[in-house]
Design a protein around this nucleic acid. Sequence first.
DNA 1: TAAAAAATTTAGATTAGTCTAAAAATGAAA
DNA 2: TTTCATTTTTAGACTAATCTAAATTTTTTA
Lengths: 216, 216
Amino acid sequence: MNTFTEENYLKAIYHLSTQSESVSTNQIAASLHTKAASVTDMLKKLADKELINYARYQGVTLSVKGEKVALSIVRKHRLWEYFLVEKLNFKWDEVHEVAEELEHISSYELVDRLDEFMGHPKFDPHGDPIPDKNGHFKAHELKPVSALLVNTVGIISGVREHSPAFLQHLEKIKLVIGKKIKVCDINSYDHSITLLLEDELLYISRDVANNLLITI
Amino acid sequence: MNTFTEENYLKAIYHLSTQSESVSTNQIAASLHTKAASVTDMLKKLADKELINYARYQGVTLSVKGEKVALSIVRKHRLWEYFLVEKLNFKWDEVHEVAEELEHISSYELVDRLDEFMGHPKFDPHGDPIPDKNGHFKAHELKPVSALLVNTVGIISGVREHSPAFLQHLEKIKLVIGKKIKVCDINSYDHSITLLLEDELLYISRDVANNLLITI
DNA sequence: TAAAAAATTTAGATTAGTCTAAAAATGAAA
DNA sequence: TTTCATTTTTAGACTAATCTAAATTTTTTA
């Protein structure tokens, strides 16, 4: 099996890979709050284990084997988040750190039974898709609210930013997963947006609109 | 906080302390499947952190602080075992290893909510008491079946041996927690015992009788 | 109570993961 | 296309946890 640390590297590479094809040493270092030199050391080890494709100075991609491991970590993370919110009544902004630990519990039996216990949920509390035991998942077709035109509607279905501060803010203004919104006005000066949310008008900044995702 | 390894040492010392007042280096080494030299190194570290009382060559006891940590690990371990059996339908012989990992998840919020979710259970699936969040628990007054006299009765309430093999054996002969038994005969040659269990006669070896605990 | 046996500790290495500082490779700009 | 800045890697060191082998202390026993 892989160590806790190796799993965290694979997960980081997986998430960074959704942004750009190949992932750089510095990107990984930033995302794991570590130093480039440490990343290089680990990349050598992961390459030896054939979990990544790595050539010096050229960045990395996950191998098929590495992606499988990464997806199993992501699956565990998101299932635990769902459990924490749905069964233990945690708030959606409180679950990330605990899930960061729980995702490394090795038993596949455990995660599969947990999945069953909860009725095979398809999305975690932040709207991110939960891979099944084979690593397959279907993502929503998501757009940031900022990409909507005036008078169009959407359903809040995810976030691009996962910080507790952002999540708490959304919670406070009742912009949570599942709610239906309509764009009423876009301010041409600062790109802030006026939304209609359950018969109430709501003003959000461009920043919030960029990080809040909807399905149509 | 303490490392995973430190927690395992504290837990081992805690369990060994229930047998003998002071715990020896070799006892710890045996229980953790490690070497005496490694134990000595760790004991120095734990003593520096004031988690144990340690004098060279004299064995160790837990400090008040160390016992608190140990009890919190035991609490987590037993609550998770309860969860696995009661909510996820694991068998009582399948939960130990998974709980060995889960007990190191650091969040106290998590374990307290889990406790509440399950209705504050007082005993784990093997009959061992679950400490509350302050480390308090009331143990059953337990006796091994081998200590009973002929024609006395008892209720299966715990095990002294936790190996899957032993637990599976008990399950197979239906000697599980909560069942009422009566001692019908004690063989004077090999000390094997004939029990009455739900109108059926059952023969158990001295070894089984020693490791199966009852309340009266 | 002295010698032998057992238990424990120390000394010195090893591995995983990390770091800083210096060297090397890459890529951008003049 | 040479120079400069940036990125990445290497070199060497550190910490936590472990090990083997040797030394020391305690306990047993004769």
